[in-house]
């Protein structure tokens, strides 16, 4: 009886693993870094999956991930073949997967910005350069792996103060994502924060920001950010010209409802070399090994 059961158990395990592997080969899977409101991720991105599926003629699936690093790992381990990365996570992912390439970016990503925001009780005023008075305040980044919420703001802080953020501020936190950064500074849990400008604008439009409590005190110079990256073996797995097809599908995405998931006005072509500045900054501040 028990032996019977064990046999069945093993058999079903083998069959399941087999079908899983087989099914996997035909499905094109993508993910996106969890950079803002993480609820209803599936509802938002499954619409994108349907769109891509129609355009590409293969089954397309979206899987949600909890962290930037998890998105990179999924890309590296071939659990996803396409991903909507940030500048830094894209660089990391493409370094780990030979032949992978950035194929598209948002129109806004050519010249992306970070906004430094402050609780109004700090009395900090908007300035043309990073206000020196932020020294000694409490400060929150976004996610540890974020370009606009970590890498670039840390770079500009180090440039302005010639010191590590932990030395400049009385307390340094990592909120986890951009929506959370805004909420924490707005509630006063942190006095100053660094946030992705698109998320700020989006939440401002949605009426989630109270200008009496929190405002922008500095806007960074522009840098390249988010990108769609695809694995180098995509053509081999899904047929010749597949990468080009994916790129076209992304560039032709015009439905505002789909684009609002990112949120971007439209997608434009991109290449790996566009992100050299991110790689350089990452190495300079020690977030990337040489």
């Amino acid at each position: 009886m028990i032996r019977e059961m064990f046999k069945k158990f093993l058999l079903s395990a083998v069959v399941l693993l087999g079908t899983a592997v087989a099914a996997h080969a035909e499905t094109f899977v993508f993910t996106a870094i969890p950079d803002e409101d993480e609820t209803r991720l599936k509802t938002r991105f499954e619409k994108v999956a349907t769109y891509l599926s129609d355009k590409l003629g293969v089954e397309v699936k979206y899987i949600p991930v909890k962290s930037y690093a998890a998105a990179v790992t999924a890309f590296r381990n071939d659990q996803v073949q396409l991903a909507w990365f940030g500048g830094l996570s894209g660089v990391r992912a493409r370094k780990l997967v030979p032949g992978s390439q950035a194929i598209a970016q948002g129109e806004e990503d050519k010249a992306f910005e970070t906004f430094f925001i402050a609780h109004n009780s700090t009395g900090l005023k908007p300035a043309a350069s990073l206000p020196k008075e932020i020294a000694g305040k409490t400060f929150t980044f976004g996610s540890k792996g974020s370009t606009s919420g970590r890498l670039m703001p840390e770079y500009f802080i180090r440039q302005a103060f010639q010191d590590a953020p932990e030395k400049v501020f009385s307390r340094v936190g990592f909120s986890g994502d951009h929506s959370r950064t805004i909420a924490l500074v707005q509630s006063g849990a942190f006095e100053v924060g660094a946030v992705n400008f698109k998320v700020w604008e989006n939440e401002m439009k949605a009426g989630k920001i109270d200008p009496a409590k929190v405002s922008v005190i500095w806007k960074t110079p522009a840098y390249p950010d988010y990108n769609w990256s695809i694995r180098g073996d995509a053509d081999k797995r899904f047929g010749a010209g597949f990468t080009e097809k994916v790129k076209t599908a992304l560039l032709e995405m015009k439905d505002p409802d789909l684009l609002s998931s990112f949120p971007r006005a439209s997608f434009i072509p991109a290449s790996n070399s566009d992100y050299q500045p991110i790689l350089d900054v990452g190495q300079k501040i020690g977030l990337l090994d040489e």
């Binding site: 069945k8 158990f9 079903s12 395990a13 399941l16 693993l17 899983a20 592997v21 099914a23 996997h24 381990n77 071939d78 659990q79």
Partner: peptide, 15 residues
Amino acid sequence: ILVSLIFLPWGGSIS
């Protein structure tokens, strides 16, 4: 255990 093996999302290969 049987139910777990069948219904857990085993999708995705391990390389």
